[in-house]
Amino acid sequence: MREIIFDTETTGLDPRTGDRLVEIGCIELVDRRETGRSFHAYYNPERDMPAAAEAVHGLSIQFLSDKPLFADRIDELLEFLGDAPLIAHNAVFDFGFVNAELARAKRPILDMARMCCTVQMARKLHPGAKHSLDALCTRYGIDRSHRVKHGALLDAELLAHLYIEMTGGRQIGLGLASEAPAPAAAAASGHAPAAAPRAFREPRPHAATPAELARHAEFVATLNQPLWHDSP
């Protein structure tokens, strides 16, 4: 199954008040495995960049001023997304900005039925815990030491690793074979060959000896009001 992990960076928190999308990063998964294909773009927001937003992602209006408009690269983005499910962290936020840009360009918006939110997944898996991307990467042992500021492609890559772990880890794509693979096939597939059969051993005697039974009886006789004497 093909899935797309994506993340966005913006000028603020609400497209309804004039905030715009400035960066998107997408990672392709097939059967919960990264294929190496990605889509990444910066966009000129046609407005200023608030200092609070720039402090988060480091994208200045000077840097973005010569980048294409979102409308100029819509077809590339939509072709990459295809009809695959779309996974994002706090997905309502990201869907809201992408759909606002699509609507601005008078193009059909993304169907919200395609949305999968990893924050909602994390709340079900770890109720009461922190659900930020940083906190979840720490929980699942995902290295984020290179994440100094937010970046759409970097965050999408981290989220891809996180999503794989949250949905069963790397083994989710492994099937159970009815027969053990041959050694050559096992080596090629990464599976260890089946262990050699063990030699049969006769069971060792384990019944108590008469002397052991006598010692046990002597010990029981010394017990003061054992519980089994209270049984009806």
Rank of each mutant, 00 (worst) to 15 (best):
W228C: 09
I5H: 01
S38V: 05
I61T: 04
D14G: 11
P127R: 06
S132G: 08
T118C: 03
E165G: 07
N44V: 05
A41I: 06
R123M: 11
V98Y: 00
K124S: 08
S178E: 15
G36T: 15
R204N: 13
A160V: 11
R215D: 12
A187G: 08
V220G: 09
I5C: 01
V119C: 05
A180E: 14
L125Y: 03
F39V: 07
C116I: 13
R147N: 07
S132I: 14
A186P: 07
H229Q: 13
K130G: 05
P85E: 00
L77F: 02
N90M: 05
N90A: 10
T222M: 10
A217N: 13
T8R: 00
L133E: 07
L102F: 06
P203T: 11
A182W: 05
Y42Q: 04
N99F: 00
R37Y: 12
A103F: 03
T209G: 06
G18L: 06
I61Y: 09
D83G: 11
Q225N: 12
D111H: 13
T17A: 14
S189V: 14
I5E: 00
P197Y: 00
A211P: 04
F6K: 01
I164S: 01
G36V: 15
T167N: 15
N90E: 09
F80K: 05
V148E: 02
L176I: 13
E101D: 00
S38C: 08
F63V: 04
G36Q: 14
A214G: 13
L21G: 00
Y42V: 01
A52V: 08
L159Q: 07
T138H: 14
A53R: 07
L213A: 11
L21I: 12
L133I: 10
L223T: 07
G128D: 05
H40F: 08
H206R: 09
P127S: 10
E28D: 10
F93C: 09
E23A: 01
G169D: 02
D72A: 15
H89E: 03
R198G: 08
V22Y: 02
R37D: 15
A113L: 04
I27F: 07
P205D: 15
F97L: 02
L176Q: 12
P193W: 14
G175Q: 14
S145D: 12
L29R: 05
D75K: 06
L158D: 10
P205Q: 04
A196P: 02
R144A: 14
E79F: 09
G18Y: 10
S60F: 12
